[in-house]
Amino acid sequence: MSALAAYATSTGEAFQFWVLGTVAVVGALCTILMRKAVHSALCLAGTMIVLAVFYLANGAYFLGIVQIVVYTGAIMMLFLFVVMLVGVTAADSLKETIKGQRWWAAACGLGFGVLLFAGIGNAALTEFAGLGAANAAHGGNVEGLAALIFTKYVFAFEITGALLITASVGAMLLTHRERTERARTQRELAEQRVRDGKHLPPLPAPGVYARHNAVDVPGLLPDGTPSELTVISTLRKRGQVRDVSGEALADLKALEQRSSERLGRDRDEEEANR
């Protein structure tokens, strides 16, 4: 293992780098180019796993495991959870709205990348000490990190703990909603409905046909137009009401035709039988 972290990299590591490095870059590009946030998150998770492997390859065994457990396992799942909460909105297109933003971003990114590469290339980075001695000093990578964290970096460590506590409390505060008024009882709601004079009976149910009575399918009015009222407000706000009027009418037509055909055929058969 110590040889792995030493200056001379093995051919195996080189092979691993080029293959997994390509995967990491593709994953990163997909992260920023995927239309849906879920896909982006998954791509990012892939890139992070590749990075975990690179940490291991670089002799940072503890970090490699932490990367998988904490980052990929916890943080990315938190992302997915929030994506689920927020929902995939219609505004999530990749069409640019700010004039010139893409060009500026491309120019800055290109310039920045070129400069970084130039900086790295210019730096005298030929001496690689390897982590063998450092890891061996305390009997292993984890022990070495522990020794540093609890001695040299103990204050930073404690303060980071305080930061985590603060962050969790802050997250609770931000997402918590205090109810400022008493919830209205069913009786009060009923009285309110009568007083308003609209929709005395319950709102119409979504869907009118058995095969289309999903919650996102609006019911049709007698003239065939869909009624927004039949879909719950959350879906309406998210724009996730399925516009089915044309589709439904086509389906209806097909159904009628099929049934008439079948009925007609049946009749023909009956006549033939007769």
Partner: peptide, 29 residues
């Protein structure tokens, strides 16, 4: 960290992860 042969770089990366976790929590909230 590997280049210089000491573990301080990994410590910093470790702290970065912790702070990133805190940041993600607050940011997502």
């Amino acid at each position: 960290s590997r280049m210089h042969g000491n573990l301080d770089g990994q410590i910093i990366a470790f702290f970065t992860m912790v702070v990133a976790a805190a940041e993600v929590v607050v940011g997502l909230a």
